[in-house]
């Protein structure tokens, strides 16, 4: 060490004790209340979905005409046999709600993944190559934003014929813009940084630069958007099912259950309220997780 190194040693030593990005992430994660609440909610609902056959007291499809529209156990006339009552066909409401998690989560994950693949691919291409690629993709974005998404989704699902896969495909294909906007801007920013120039000077091809230098730096924003899109896709499915152009009976989808309960909502309000609460908890869990992840992964924490 040269002489002038010594004064700096104190300062540098101070800084080399800093934590790795992974350690900072874990530390912030456990200090973020919103994230913990959201993650717990999601975890519980995911477990319910996985263990649905074990947890559900009845089959979600089995009809018992003698026991139609029983109220939940705490209301007058409720029985312990049907904890949350039964619907208009005499099916156990709790079991249908439990199986409903599977529909929501499958569609949420599926559609958010379809959107991710489209949006991130386009975003990285537009951001990295710029020029006409960027202009065309930006035009595509404007056109997509101008389309009334729900209306188009309703029409397409109705025309093609409703099934879980069609709903996943259509909701996914209509929800890529958020990924695109964020990854495009981030790619543009990262592309102009010197470490990308250094990689190019070391002989890396565009493909190598995108995979090795750019995508790892996009991961945290992509995960954040994915959690938000998960919630958005779940809400989109429930809206479609509610309007009758999504999941079809007798599959237990929460949106569909609300639609079915609507006729009787003035004297059997729980038929509408319970599936709504399930939806709310699942989506708020995803949003809290997304908000939390954004705070945790942003360099300065929450912006103040």
């Amino acid at each position: 060490m040269t002489d002038s190194d010594i004064t700096l040693a104190a300062v540098e030593l101070d800084q080399t004790t800093l934590l790795t990005p992974g350690q900072i992430f874990r530390q912030r994660m456990f200090g973020h209340k919103g994230f913990l609440i959201g993650a717990t909610l999601i975890l519980i609902i995911a477990i319910v979905a996985l263990l649905a056959p074990v947890l559900a007291p009845h089959s979600p499809f089995e009809q018992s005409l003698a026991d139609r529209m029983l109220p939940p156990v705490w209301s007058e006339g409720g029985t312990w046999d049907y904890l949350l009552g039964t619907d208009q066909n005499g099916r156990d409401y709790l079991s249908r709600l439990i199986y409903g998690t599977r529909v929501s989560i499958t569609i949420g994950l599926g559609a958010a993944t379809v959107g991710l693949l489209i949006g991130v691919t386009l975003g990285v291409i537009a951001g990295y190559f710029g020029g006409w690629a960027d202009h065309s993709i930006s035009f595509l974005l404007t056109a997509q934003l101008a389309l009334p998404g729900l209306l188009l989704a309703m029409a397409l699902v109705f025309i093609i014929g409703p099934s879980i896969w069609v709903v996943i495909g259509i909701v996914g294909v209509l929800h890529w813009t958020y990924y695109l906007v964020v990854t495009r801007a981030a790619t543009q920013r990262i592309r102009s940084l010197d470490f990308v120039a250094a990689a190019a000077a070391a002989g890396a091809s565009p493909r190598q630069i995108i995979w090795h230098e750019i995508l790892p730096n996009l991961m945290s924003s992509i995960i954040v958007i994915f959690t938000f899109e998960l919630g958005i896709a779940i809400l989109a499915e429930s809206s479609l099912s509610f309007l009758g152009v999504g999941i079809q009976p007798p599959t237990p989808s929460w949106g569909l259950m609300i639609a079915e309960g609507k006729q009787a909502m003035f004297y059997r309000p729980w038929l509408v309220i319970l599936p709504g609460i399930c939806l709310f908890l699942l989506v708020i869990g995803a949003n809290l997780m997304g908000d939390g992840l954004r705070d945790i992964t942003s360099p300065e924490g929450r912006n103040e």
């Binding site: 940084l193 250094a198 002989g203």
Partner: peptide
Amino acid sequence: IPPTERAAFVQPVFQDPYTSLNPRR
């Protein structure tokens, strides 16, 4: 000169040490 061979001739050092290293590596 192919890119990787060129890299063996000439290499850069940039101005800003905060942006010249990939933060995820």
